[in-house]
């Protein structure tokens, strides 16, 4: 009996140690980012674009990357949303047979798993084929592909939990598929769908590998879809790679800004999904 108790105690101890380790390390990531980034974060970092000699440590900021990332993230979220909503609705059995729906879900799972660098490589090849340079448009297209499976799968998870009976009472009133979908399914799934969009936005805005070749990098804020565009993840990556300490500090600041954006989006999504759940039937 005593040895059994001891075994229990040992493993419980190991578990607590493990969980503590995971949480401490992850908290450490956030701590390091804030600790290193906060001192380097100034107002001019946020509001100015790089000036002459910026990459040697002179004046300027990363407004180009902040705005660029927002353009990329918002543009791609919008495109992915337009495509995800019909797909997520279409996976219900009213629209699609069981086989095709499960097949599509598996395809989406595989797409979700594909590393972003592969999307980047694919995007680059396609753009080269059409003679497109690295541009805002290219970045948006590739990020849309990256976000699409995340959005659809998260939306579908929510839609699937809607009780069949709820749809039944709607159909029993003599509604068509699309009427039930828009009036009942959309309302019921709305909080989850908002979360899905913001989740995908957070993923997209933080991804560097996919836009490395497709969006390019520039010191200016893009004026058209065909201009290259800077982004925060790449700002971090390029600036940490220089040997000049002042520029490295700016990498820390850029990382902090990126982290803040991702956290704010994550928290807002939770608040919004709560707000939209007013009518939800449980």
């Amino acid at each position: 009996m005593r040895s059994r108790r001891l075994e229990e105690q040992i493993f419980k101890g190991l578990m607590i140690a493990s969980l503590t380790l995971v949480l401490v390390v992850l908290a450490g990531i956030i701590f390091i980012t804030i600790y290193k980034g906060a001192p380097a974060l100034t107002l001019s970092m946020l509001t100015e674009t790089p000036k002459g000699g910026y990459y040697l440590g002179k004046e300027g900021g990363i407004a180009n990357a902040i705005v660029g990332s927002l353009y990329l993230g918002l543009g791609a979220s919008f495109c992915a949303l337009l495509l995800s909503v019909p797909v997520a609705f279409g996976l219900q059995k009213e629209y699609t047979g069981w086989r095709f729906a499960s097949f599509t879900k598996l395809v989406l799972d595989v797409l979700w798993g594909i590393p972003s660098i592969v999307y980047g490589a694919f995007g680059f090849v396609v753009m080269a084929y059409f003679g497109l340079r690295a541009s805002l448009l290219g970045g948006i297209i590739v990020l849309t592909l990256l976000m699409l499976p995340i959005m659809v799968r998260s939306m579908e998870e929510v839609i699937r939990t809607i009780p069949l009976e709820l749809k039944e009472v709607s159909y029993a009133l003599g509604t068509t598929r699309i009427e039930t979908t828009m009036a009942v399914v959309l309302r019921q799934a709305l909080p989850g769908m908002v979360t899905a969009v913001l989740l995908a936005f957070g993923r997209g805005i933080g991804d560097a590998a996919s836009i490395l070749f497709t969006a390019g990098y520039t010191d200016y804020i893009p004026r058209s879809l065909f201009d290259p565009v800077a982004s925060l993840p790449l700002a971090v990556f390029f600036q940490i790679g220089t040997p000049i300490p002042e520029v490295q500090e700016r990498a820390y600041a850029s990382a902090l800004i990126l982290l803040l954006i991702v956290f704010v989006v994550s928290i807002v999504s939770r608040i919004l999904s709560h707000r939209f759940s007013k009518h939800i039937v449980r």
Binding site: I32, G206, D207, A208, A255, L258, S266
Partner: peptide, 23 residues
């Protein structure tokens, strides 16, 4: 913890890389 872990799963990979370089 689930909430915290979900949020942490969303941290961009460059930030992990940066912390790797620093620490």
């Amino acid at each position: 913890v689930r909430l915290v872990v979900d949020i942490l799963a969303g941290i961009p990979s460059v930030i992990y890389g940066l912390c790797g370089v620093i620490a």
